[in-house]
Write a protein that binds this DNA or RNA. Sequence first.
DNA 1: CTGAAAGCGCTTACAG
DNA 2: CTGAAAGCGCTTACAG
Lengths: 341, 341
Amino acid sequence: MQGEPVRSGRGRPTMKDVATRAGVALKTVSRVVNDEPGVTPETANRVRTAINELGFRRNDSARLLRKGQTASIGLIMEDIGDPFYSALSRAVEDVAHWNGSLLFTGSSDEDPQREQELVLALCARRVDGLIVIPASGDHRYLLPEIAAGVASVFVDRPAGMIDADAVLADNVGGTRAGVTHMIRQGHRRIGFIGDNPQIYTAAQRHRGYLEAMTGAGLAIDPSWVCMAKPTPDGIRDALSRMLAGPSPVTALFSGNNRITVRALREIAASGERIALVGFDDFELADLLSPGVTVVAQNPAEMGRRATELLFGRLAGMRGPAQYVELGTKLIVRGSGEIPPA
Amino acid sequence: MQGEPVRSGRGRPTMKDVATRAGVALKTVSRVVNDEPGVTPETANRVRTAINELGFRRNDSARLLRKGQTASIGLIMEDIGDPFYSALSRAVEDVAHWNGSLLFTGSSDEDPQREQELVLALCARRVDGLIVIPASGDHRYLLPEIAAGVASVFVDRPAGMIDADAVLADNVGGTRAGVTHMIRQGHRRIGFIGDNPQIYTAAQRHRGYLEAMTGAGLAIDPSWVCMAKPTPDGIRDALSRMLAGPSPVTALFSGNNRITVRALREIAASGERIALVGFDDFELADLLSPGVTVVAQNPAEMGRRATELLFGRLAGMRGPAQYVELGTKLIVRGSGEIPPA
DNA sequence: CTGAAAGCGCTTACAG
DNA sequence: CTGAAAGCGCTTACAG
């Protein structure tokens, strides 16, 4: 951990140090480091020797300050530990890397306050652009930043109270397809476990459920629907309410990957046998028995499209806010094809 | 996307602009922005008004350049899309946030070249420190950076050819425990599917397997062991070789989460019934039937310990390189308790 | 309490 | 081909 200092003062050697050692001007070092023309091979060699002897590495932060950009973008999501977001992150990183940018990542934990802190901290670092999976419902705090030139694209959920680019999944249509699939299997009493209705995707998927049920002329008992933060306890209670009443459900639609997993766990523990379709695909869904039928979205594709849009904006693309909606895919594996009891 | 310029020139307002508007000197603006004492409330108010009118936000990149640090750290791993690394990332992020640092993340895809590029790009940005899950076996390229003061801690695998802090799991002991567990169930012919033996963890776990078998006085048929990059095809072939020979295995140890999942898929497809213990826990391991017995490490704990060590170094902690070894936990769920045929 | 000057490590714009 | 000066947006060190 202890290093021998490579120059008199503390800290790292700078172009100035290299220049002194090579007996040239600062600007000449800059030319060599940046492969600019107009340096004799002999001079260039002297500079390169000095660079190696001193262990010089250009300070890109200083460079970028002068150039007025940072060659970095920020990604704010709910939780990078969640497989859905980590798959999305990877796609964002790849496109950023492709465009010569480094990536800051931050998790908001679905807390609007933390989202705003992270976003503004990144703006203060002057990231070139921002990919945001919003926790907040009000992004007016971003308006001055956008006006100042920070490109930003929202993913998974649209921005709140401002008009901005967004890449979304077809939440309503996907859910409608999943619920309709179970209706076609003969189910009439279908439950829905979603998330906090403040969350855009939760509300949209709930709407898809309502549309499918209403469209099929099916009434919905209030006890069949749970829209709340999906804690294990909450899901257990919701399930037992759905199954206990005078008109128990025979099928369940779960609103996202975490809910699906928790519901599976509860269903397995309860010993009940009901049909299940979940929004979001997840690893091993095919290996469970029965395999879990899901409405899959493609997180990598969402991340990729959003980041390409971001770099398009950074490259000068103008025009009104774009809304990209990506389709979903019903993947039939068994759990959604269990017939009504 | 189009914003009205808030000052004459293009770009964002600076402290200088604020100073001009408030009719004070630059330094006074700096004082107000940084809550430094020695400004009359009245002056401060004038400055704050100007800040709001102009939409000024301090440029932290410029600030940190002057201060000589960047309040950011970098995390280089194999693939942020992998749940193991994403869980680790989240822990790193939390500790970084706790310490007022932002986090750069980058995926090396197990490519030493890309690892080096990413690491050096981050060093050029002058990150304060680096958490590295190495792909490379030779980290001498980092020596000048470390000498220049970049703190660095290695996780999951030690640094190659240099002496540096590392947080590792007990790969040998964990694997030994897992294999021994199956030996105790009566298995004598146990297969091992690992990864490329160049990878530290792969080699260590292989060693644990050898120790357990040898320790129990069991001979190992060469066809039982596969040490190669775990492609789906490679795993299928390895499995059929293990099961086809004159002395087919009755049990299998799989060297990491991805191998386990792929092996499960192949075993399910083949219809064979063999015991399985895997290194690494994974979501839903308990919901499969049988549940999957695993040797669990704790990625979040690894990330947390490594990052705490990193910030300890940044806070001035001296002394020789530290090696932290974290224990593993055998989690019994059923697949490892299948008796020999 | 307030400010003018120098400097962080680079690049830009210009001169020789 | 090479370099001296100014500037990116801030903070530090010092003076009044």
